[in-house]
Design a protein around this nucleic acid. Structure first.
Lengths: 241, 241
DNA sequence: CCTACCGATCGGTAGG
DNA sequence: CCTACCGATCGGTAGG
């Protein structure tokens, strides 16, 4: 499984240009400014994910980034825009991570084995601490930032869902699955796999019950295998529904 | 289906006695004190559910309850305890609501029809605005109130899950289901039914896509029926898994 | 039970 | 003169 834990914190780069990209080009590409902005983004990302929107003050962000608060305001118009950019960046990273999960399914030869492998990776990706924090944060602030929550949902789990639905359609056309409604089948697959663990994780409970690391890994595998077994029993080529 | 929307706001009654229940018995049962406390509980419940913990000030609560802020502190030690009592009361009401959903399944004669009916009621109960707000609130404050979140989870969805598992065990012993792991089967049933709609609702999206009321009701029925069909295809007596 | 008020901290901005 | 950035502080409001 992927070990790129930092992929979620990278969003480092020049600030978005607003019109006057020609005349201010030099200052925008100033290495000092780029470094400063990256430090703010990194600090804000970890603080927002950990403490939420209201729980994070601009003083905290400035302190962690080792810049003055005025410097934060020189790079971001206000707290709302900073938050939106940060979460959008994390969601974009999560989206890239998610896409890699669904490419392998469609070409499956031994479907059960491939589905089990994909499911084992999928549940571990979704249960990564950063992803769980992102979900919690979007849920917490869905009232304050409804567009952000909707865009992130459509961008990450929504795209994964349609990718799974497309893969199922392809598998059905090859006679490997019996799918009447691909979108519904993708929902069923996703929540057979993720529902219980995600629900527990969102409420701060351990998503899996194992004590040791090995027990937890085994439990994750069992969840994935059971989900695939139930899915194939219902949607497999030889199934009755 | 139940139309008792106010069942979640009732928790009206004398304050919990702390030791000295004899000497202060009169003042604790004072009708004025009971009425005042009920007003505070009602105001705090609606504000906490709507605006969250940090978004609700004690001034707001006092104003809505038409009492002074000092009166709130005369009834509740601090904001944390007020919040904990409020949420515990809402969860207790939700628990009572949930229990009624699972009693009918076990004695099923026509299992598919009974499951469909139970599922249609179940998803509507979970998607009630107050229940969704409670879930959102517990997720948002799971870091600040970990014990509360855990207790509410074990008390409401956890008990529903075990009740479903027990019903499945009974149905399996009568040859109507093929269940190897009742707890897992209950998870699969629950999240086939609720997963997608709950996930969308948590992020502020419409859980169902219909525009008119009738379309939304039809979509809810379809979600329930599809979940039951998939579940029975996998776990029904004539299924292969 | 109310008015008044506290230590602290919030998001945002002043001058240099 | 420009920029990026600083120390200090603004007016309001939080829980208590």
């Amino acid at each position: 499984m992927a070990s790129d834990d930092e992929v979620l914190l990278v969003r480092v780069g020049p600030p978005p240009q607003r019109g006057e990209s020609r005349t201010r080009r030099d200052s925008a590409n100033d290495p000092r400014r780029i470094r400063t902005r990256a430090a703010i983004v990194e600090a804000a990302t970890s603080l927002f994910l950990e403490k939420g929107y209201r729980g994070t003050s601009l003083d905290d962000i400035a302190a962690l980034a080792a810049v003055s608060k005025r410097t934060v305001y020189n790079n971001f118009a206000d707290k709302d825009r900073l938050f939106t950019e940060i979460i959008g960046g994390v969601a974009a990273s999560a989206e890239a991570l998610a896409q890699s999960l669904t490419t392998t399914i469609a070409g499956a030869a031994d479907l059960p084995a491939v589905l089990r492998e994909a499911a084992r990776g999928h549940i571990r990706a979704v249960l990564r601490p950063q992803i769980l924090q992102l979900r919690r944060l979007l849920i917490s602030e869905a009232n304050r930032f409804p567009d952000l929550a909707r865009d992130c949902y459509l961008g990450v789990p929504g795209r994964v869902m349609t990718a799974i639905a497309d893969a199922f359609t392809s598998l059905a056309s090859r006679g490997l699955l019996r799918i009447a409604d691909p979108a519904r089948a993708a929902e069923h697959y996703s929540f057979l796999l993720l529902g219980a663990a995600l629900d527990r994780a969102m409420l701060g409970l351990d998503p899996v019950s194992g004590a040791s690391e090995a027990e937890r890994e085994g439990e994750l595998d069992r969840i994935a295998d059971d989900a695939v077994a139930t899915f194939l029993a219902a949607y497999g080529a030889q199934a009755s529904a």
